[in-house]
């Protein structure tokens, strides 16, 4: 159940992250800045996931 539980929690949190991302996108001073923020956080998240899958964590 641990994995299903983790997935449930992340799905339920995803909406908050989504909302925060939208607010960030609109509050950034320039369009460039808002893109950079998105790409940067996206890259971090992707790399965590990548490392996790390679090292063969729970995933």
């Amino acid at each position: 159940m641990a994995q299903a539980e983790a997935v449930m929690i992340s799905m339920m949190l995803s909406f908050l992250f989504y909302a925060l991302a939208v607010i960030w996108a609109f509050s950034a001073k320039t369009a460039m800045l808002s893109w950079l923020g998105m790409v940067f956080t996206g890259l971090i998240a992707m790399s965590i996931w990548g490392v996790h899958s390679i090292t063969g964590g729970a995933a």
Binding site: Q3, V7, M11, S14, F15, A58, A59
Partner: peptide
């Protein structure tokens, strides 16, 4: 939000 479970399942 299917991509979320899809990433591990």
């Amino acid at each position: 939000m299917l991509p979320v479970p899809a990433s591990s399942y």
